[in-house]
């Protein structure tokens, strides 16, 4: 048990800390590079993305509100809230955020999300309170 804890503490600083605003800035830079006139991020578009999709949506596991804990639709495991207002650890580890955008966009939309969509989504989560 002590060895387990030691491993956890050693592993912790490896995660790059960041803020949700940093993340938003990175997606903005990406969206601008992707061409097309960039006109900012929209929480409303992010909310539509959160609730939209086919049989599976973000909300089906993350609960209808990003301020509430969710429950994995198949395994039943509880999922901590997505919005930083309810869970300050969210959107602070860019690699983790990218990993989940990758997996979940492919599961829900059957494709990768664009930087514009990721930014809209992050904006929606940051605004939730």
């Amino acid at each position: 048990m002590r060895r387990w804890l030691a491993t956890l503490f050693l592993a912790a600083p490896a995660a790059l800390a960041g803020t949700p605003a940093d993340l938003l800035g990175a997606y903005e830079a990406q969206a601008k590079r992707a061409g097309a006139a960039f006109a900012g991020f929209s929480a409303a578009r992010g909310a539509a993305l959160y609730r939209g999709g086919g049989s599976a949506t973000c909300a089906s596991c993350h609960s209808p509100s990003p301020l509430q804990p969710g429950r994995h639709a198949r395994t039943g495991k509880s999922i901590a809230p997505l919005a930083p207002a309810a869970n300050p650890a969210r959107l602070t580890d860019p690699a983790k955020t990218e990993k989940w955008f990758g997996r979940n966009c492919r599961d829900v939309l059957a494709r990768d999300c664009t930087a514009q969509e990721k930014g809209d989504f992050v904006r929606f989560l940051m605004n939730a309170n």
């Binding site: 060895r3 592993a11 994995h72 495991k77």
Partner: peptide, 16 residues
């Protein structure tokens, strides 16, 4: 016999 933090956190993210 040994611990692995990545196994625990990655596999444990969606299920036991």
């Amino acid at each position: 016999q040994s611990a692995n933090a990545k196994w625990k956190s990655e596999c444990g993210a969606c299920h036991v």
